[in-house]
Amino acid sequence: MANKLSIVVPCYNEQEVLPQSLPVLKQVLLTLIDQCQVSSDSQLVFVDDGSVDQTWSLIEQASAQDPNVSGIKLSRNFGHQGALLAGLSATQDAQLVVSIDADLQDDPQVILEMVQKFAEGAQIVYAVRNNRATDSRFKRGTAELFYKLMNWLGVKMIPDAADFRLMSQQAVQVLLSYPERNLFLRGLVPLVGFSSAKVYFQRQERAAGESKYPLRKMLRLAMDGITSFSIAPIKLIMGLGFSIVLVAFLLLLYTIVQKIRGEVVTGWSSLMISIWALGGVQLICISVIGEYVGKIFSEVKQRPRFTIEKNLYNRKKK
């Protein structure tokens, strides 16, 4: 008997792109069903992450017309990672789960190859970009720097792989057992273990609508990744503190020597520069420590990572 596949698609204000992405994803699903690679009750599961446009209405309409389409509506915007996790948690009757964004920048045709890799024994299949030709020079440079930094910090990420991946239900259950609220799935999934494989694709321009990941959110995601998986920044702060103390000690010795030699010069400029420099360093250090304290504050409250308002997936199973 063929395995059931659920394709989880997080959506936030995607009314422009859904009419284009839904038929493309449905065709991929039908191809897999026709080839008997997945079961006929396999589903497209659109997760509405608190959209304020007509996204949910489009999902409800498609679900009513098509038995292979269902949806989950979150009570508010929980963020892309929370929406993905909600989709994974709701599809626990599927033997394999694929996550892909709704904007068609990730090539849905690659899902065919991912399912084949699963059939060959891979529990997790990562979709990896074969180039960054569509990115700006700034985005390419910062992405490369981020992956190098994460590798240096000891975080085992898959370079150029985002949240387009296939996971077996066993791997999904292990991922769901991780209790943290500060989600960075690109770093969490490799921690799950199990046999893995990679498939490669060329990322396209967004089919319609606007990107939901501007620079501000990308920087926030990068900071979450760094502070969720490593305390190296705090260790760097300690090293910086010792370095500043060493410099201050050397300056003290220099001042004493100059005093003995009678070459004391009033250094108002150097004094002010030192005060401003040290003040800036202190504020940066406090903010980094505050980032960790904030994460601890968020974790100990153990608030729900998402809240499902409506679940058409469960209705489909009935």
Rank of each mutant, 00 (worst) to 15 (best):
G241C: 11
R186C: 08
G241K: 12
R261L: 14
A143S: 13
K235D: 14
L221A: 11
A162Y: 07
K198R: 11
K212R: 15
G262T: 04
A207H: 03
I234A: 15
L175I: 01
L250R: 11
G154R: 06
Q258F: 03
V245E: 11
E263Y: 07
S228G: 04
G239L: 09
L250G: 10
Q258H: 03
Y200T: 02
A171V: 03
K156N: 14
V172L: 02
A161F: 04
G262V: 02
D160G: 04
R165T: 06
F249E: 10
M167H: 04
L183T: 05
L252E: 10
V155H: 04
K259V: 10
L185C: 01
M218V: 15
V264W: 14
P159Q: 01
N182H: 09
I256L: 14
V174S: 06
L253R: 03
L252Q: 13
V247L: 13
Y254K: 14
G193H: 00
F201N: 01
M150W: 04
E144D: 12
V264G: 04
V174W: 03
L240G: 14
L175W: 01
P179F: 07
L145K: 07
L251R: 14
S195W: 05
N131G: 03
R140P: 02
N182T: 09
R203D: 01
A207Q: 10
E144Y: 06
S211P: 03
S177V: 05
F249P: 04
Q202L: 05
L153P: 03
G154N: 00
T227W: 02
E205M: 13
Y200A: 00
I234F: 08
L149Y: 06
S136V: 00
A161V: 02
M223E: 09
A143G: 05
N130H: 04
R203S: 06
T134L: 03
K148E: 08
Y254D: 15
T255G: 06
E210S: 14
K156S: 14
D224V: 10
A208Y: 02
P159Y: 01
R206W: 05
K139H: 10
Q204K: 11
I158W: 05
L250E: 12
L240F: 08
N151V: 02
T134Y: 02
E205G: 14
E263D: 13
Q170C: 03
E144A: 10
V199I: 06
R206K: 12
L252T: 14
I256Y: 11
G262C: 06
K148P: 00
L185G: 03
L149C: 07
R261I: 07
Y147H: 11
R181A: 07
A143D: 08
Q173P: 01
W152G: 15
F164I: 05
K217L: 15
R165W: 00
E263K: 15
M150A: 12
A197G: 06
W152R: 15
I158C: 04
